[in-house]
Design a protein around this nucleic acid. Structure first.
Lengths: 213, 213, 213, 213
DNA sequence: GATGAATGAGATTTCATTCAT
DNA sequence: TATGAATGAAATCTCATTCAT
């Protein structure tokens, strides 16, 4: 299904029309990779089907490039927020989670995790890139925050890497859920879910009662 | 010329050869719905392609029936464990999570969540069934456990429904992860992840220090 | 996943390549609907199989559109002949029958009646169209001629609608016969059959001996 | 489509269960050859699909045998009626036509002509049999009647063979019509159609006014 | 550079026919 | 002898990709 073409990520990055990337994001998120038709993407982007091939080698290539173009900037924003921050880590974590949802939760971008997870088996190359460039990098950011919290005495002595995994999973899960089964489930307040989860998590890793929020 | 649509779930359930269900589970979990070929399923089941159609109306039908046949028994097992249990809820929760992973984590069944999430948009009927018959039922079971813990004084006064969502999400996430990106990530001990997560969660909702595990 | 059914006859009529219509006419007339393969039609039209689907939604659609495109012009020709005519009706009838056979009898078009009759049960939509737009319209034309003959005193007072049915049936039957069993039967002169039939019919409905041909 | 097996008509005739023949008649008439499924015929006959093959070599064989078994007795009845008759031929013709319709018009048998005509191209062997054993034999019967009418002075000197074709065609056409497009057309009285047609025909071939009905 | 008609490989689906029970 | 599950060849249909204009 996937024709592997040993090629370099981000090649020809600059020339790529953002209309195509945007259209691809929208269509792929809505239908999944296989059920998305290039016809639809081309129509939504306002170009001809043939034109797609000037910018992308294949449907698979478009898919992979789209994911990368869309996801990297988001990560970079988060990193600079963390690096610039001074103050209690618990507060930072809480504000990041709610901010993240406020911005990401409303865009199509939050469909990316579901997409990547769904297609990982069919796009090992993409999966590898995603894990290396997004997952690990994001987890490292979170683990760093937790380490700062441990060092500052806010948190107990726990493994920061596992703690990061634990903290991240409900957040990612929320985005996956929103893009898949949420519309079939009872309505619930995702923001409340995230806040409550963060609170329980922080209480769970806090050094003592007093530091609890 | 007119396709009959009145379609009852679990129709002809018993007659369905388990070889086909098993093969379908394996192939669908491995490749996703669209990338799975009936040829492969038939070959793996040891029957001809045409034979599939004696038991299933279509590829979509096979997919939906497979999910239901596979997932319901797992849920029923969990329910009877909870109902028969007497003792501290925290202990029950911990043992359930680790047991669940010990059994489910090793079978193909734990690929179902990823599959359903990936295909929800293309199979709204299945998604609806899954949410109603699996998600809500499972969440109710967990919420009931938490309520018992609140009533017995183990846990703080929290919303059991949201707490259930919070508790479930890392567990489901672990299964999704295992079936998608885990092989591209650094190895990590899923069991440790789940135990640690449960411990943090229980500590986070516990009434006081003394009840902590 | 949902097939659009709102289907208007004569949609996209003009764009349809006549090569495909012609090839379809030929193949369908020769083998009947079910035994006609899209492969054969495509090959005969000089296009690929897939190209058929740019112009027609399905085999059934191609069949229906072909019938309509082919049959309407023939009817219109006949109507203008009748409308422009001045003179004895018996003469008009005789000349129309023989002319009709001279032109229609030699083209593939005269296979249409057999085709529509054969497939009526499987294509009720087409059958309805055909009866309304071809049969009734044609019968009305003939009934009008007979009425003119009655009013001018050429013919007896008979029910023009039934008389039209009686006059039409051997002509249509001749075309059906030619396309089906004639090649297994003794050769006979269809033109003579039609002329003799018309003569007997006109004598049978004539007011008096003297007007007989 | 049709596998020719040089084999003798009416082989194993006696053993053939009439339930199968009846079921085949019904299903073939209703859907045409290609759209008829052996499953349906077997179910309607109350036997298993496999059992059909004990009595018939193939679907094509069943089709051909069915036509022959059903059609021959009808013809023989007509022949003995004609042979036994004494009196005016015009009267015989009129009574035969109306009687024929009264009996045939109500059974499934009158679907046979449409069926044979529709499938002639795909079943040349059957077509040949049908023309030789039914059409020609029937036409000869009618031509004989007309000849008797000419000899007795009832009818003009006309070619009896062509006259027979002319007389037969509206009758056969009526049966074809009934089985195909009649349900999409305005209702009309077929018996009246046949009586009126016969009357016009007889008047058209009568020697003089006085012999007219 | 852009277009969109044409391609054809590959997928699902049907069903007459076979054959072990 | 009768059954009906299993077969597999053949058909329709889809859509990523190409290429003449």
């Amino acid at each position: 299904m996937v024709k592997e073409q040993a090629h370099r990520w981000q090649r020809r990055k600059e020339e790529r029309p953002s209309e195509i990337i945007d259209a691809a994001l929208e269509v792929f998120v809505e239908h999944g990779y296989a059920a998305s038709k290039l016809d639809d993407i081309a129509r939504k982007a306002g170009v001809s089907k043939g034109s797609l091939y000037r910018y992308f080698d294949s449907k698979a290539d478009l898919f992979k490039e789209m994911v990368m173009q869309v996801v990297i900037p988001e990560l970079e924003k988060a990193e600079s927020t963390v690096n610039d921050y001074q103050g209690a880590i618990a507060t930072l974590i809480t504000s990041m989670v709610t901010n993240w949802w406020k911005t990401m939760g409303e865009t199509r971008v939050c469909g990316i995790p579901k997409l990547v997870i769904s297609e990982a088996a069919n796009f090992p190359e993409l999966a590898e890139f995603y894990v290396d460039s997004v997952i690990k990098r994001g987890r490292k950011l979170v683990a760093g925050m937790i380490k700062r919290g441990i060092e500052s005495g806010e948190f107990r002595e726990i493994d920061p890497d596992y703690a990061a995994r634990i903290m991240i999973s409900p957040v990612v899960f929320a985005s996956i859920w929103k893009e898949s089964l949420s519309s079939f489930d009872d309505e619930y307040d995702i923001n409340h879910f995230l806040v409550m989860n963060t609170e329980i998590f922080l209480r769970g890793i806090s050094r003592n009662r007093e530091t609890d929020i």
